[in-house]
Amino acid sequence: MGAPAAQDPSASSYYVGDAFYRELIEAFADWDRDDLAIAEPARRDAVRAFLEREARLLDQARYEDWLALYAPECAYWIPGTPERGDPRREITFAFHDRRQLEDRIFRLRTGYAWSQHPASRTVRSVSNVELFATESAHIVMARSNFLIAELLDGDLRHWAGWAGHRLQITADGYSILAKQVNLIDCDRNVRNPSIAF
């Protein structure tokens, strides 16, 4: 096995190791503190627009465009408990790296994912967007609430929770380093959780 240099995160997963997990857990612990809040309306509005666009891309099943919002070495993490835990030690609701996000999209596109046959229709609302500073001037954390109305094979139902986005500030906007989706029923038995959150 060669040295893990310059690997393509769509094809291999060298970047997800102990250091990555540790930084992720640290980044999502104790970050939404009042003393770190960024009040500037322009910055909050820019992040709000970014999150609204993410929601729309998912509603429109524009998964490739959605994925383009993520940094190459990203994480998509839906904890299995409200305490969120350490994904190295316990099962999560979902924990994807870039390659597995692409797996998820690939599966949905096969035409044989019976849990999405017919495909769900969704309408996502994003609200209560707050912005928080980190130690890095180039990284901000966003907290938002979401409500997803899903029409699943004729049944209308809802998912609710809040999301934490760790955002890299780029030349033309933001890039998602990690998204943590906190479903309020993450530790309950749920029916057909096959949409992307």
Partner: peptide, 10 residues
Amino acid sequence: LHPGMEHYEA
């Protein structure tokens, strides 16, 4: 293929 496979295998 799972997150961290290549890292931990190495």
